[in-house]
Design a protein around this nucleic acid. Structure first.
Lengths: 198, 198
DNA sequence: ACACACATGTAATTGGTTACATGATTTC
DNA sequence: GAAATCATGTAACCAATTACATGTGTGT
């Protein structure tokens, strides 16, 4: 019984949102942990079947539901499994940030290109900030009494801090690149010195 | 000729570090972009062969080297390829942060568990901060004249900003969880309400 | 002599995305 | 009745990690 991360994300969602379908679980993930976690259907549906086979969740086509969707609920075993996983030290998988990689190699192209990347990055973060702030105010009204609330707020405040710091950085980064662009005619027009072949 | 991200990372490294072996490239990646990018040997060596087959790099077993290692150098085509990639908008792949996910579901376990995760997280960031600051001062002395330097500093200052903001957050998060722990006897001892089966 | 870093590679596995395929329900 | 969203799933593909396998050079 070795589960993948998707499984724990599902167990986690079901732990405070009983009786959701695969489709709904994905929606919930998007709107709650979306800014640091993503799931695709291609991953969710097979995982739901596996979790059901392991008796960690049970299909529950009962009272309220019964359209053409299949809802699941957490079993005690499922909750135990979630708790077990929570106690295991998190592993931070090797980071891969294409934005930063492109920026790092920015000297090999015109500054305008890096400027454009940073502008996109800033816009992204502005949008993200707006949604996070919205979540913050809505959540305070709707979820304040839920047991998970303090923890949700912790992840939210983390997101807000990171996004805000990213925005501050964006401004100074843009300023320094624009200064560079104004100063020198593109540094990038050089060809790396080499010897022979091709 | 569709290349994976590893290929561009390699091209990028070779663009300002001519003549490195696979082993060395990995070292360089670790020490320069390591805090936002990682590569494994299982990815690097096959990719080097592919890049050589595409004439984007050339094996170069010349003068200085010639131990039992094979060094590569960027070709003009390789540099063109890198520039092309740099101009393409970056894509940020769906984020997956296990630390935040566990924290989000922290209400399902004792607060002590989340506290431990955050402590680990804080330590991690403290170590990272130390190395980044070291890189900052060393790099100012050693690389200040290199053409890529301003861009390297941008990624570095981004890392510093993020790490510092993460540390500030860690303190407040720890404080709030410790307050919670002191206040209530574990909220987590409840079992999700359910009906029937298992 | 031993250990450690240097150095290169392959094979198995996995975790995951994307695209495809299909159909029901709701809303306009 | 058309369009959008709800809803479930499969198949193909891929990028990447991990573990394995092997050997050399260097320092103590």
């Amino acid at each position: 019984m070795k589960l993948n991360q998707t499984a724990y994300a599902i167990l986690g969602i079901l732990s405070f949102h009983p009786r959701q379908s695969g489709y709904h679980i994905r929606k919930t993930i998007e709107t709650t942990v979306g800014f640091f976690w993503g799931e695709s259907f291609g991953q969710i549906y097979p995982t739901l079947k596996r979790l059901a086979a392991e008796d960690l969740i049970v299909p529950d086509g009962a009272p309220t539901g019964s359209k053409n969707r299949l809802e699941y609920a957490l079993t005690p075993a499922g909750h135990a499994c979630l708790e077990e996983w929570l106690a295991v030290p998190y592993r931070s998988d090797p980071p891969r940030d294409e934005f930063l990689l492109k920026l790092f190699f920015g000297g090999e192209a015109a500054p305008a290109i890096s400027i454009e990347h940073i502008r996109k990055f800033r816009e992204r973060n502005q949008r993200l900030l707006a949604t996070l702030e919205q979540v913050e105010s809505l959540s305070a009204q709707q979820n304040a009494n839920q047991p998970g609330y303090p923890f949700w707020m912790l992840t939210l405040s983390f997101g807000l801090a990171q996004v805000r710091s990213a925005l501050v950085w964006s401004e100074s980064a843009l300023a320094s690149l624009q200064a560079m662009e104004a100063a020198g005619p593109t540094i990038a027009s050089r060809i790396p010195e080499r010897k022979g072949s091709i």
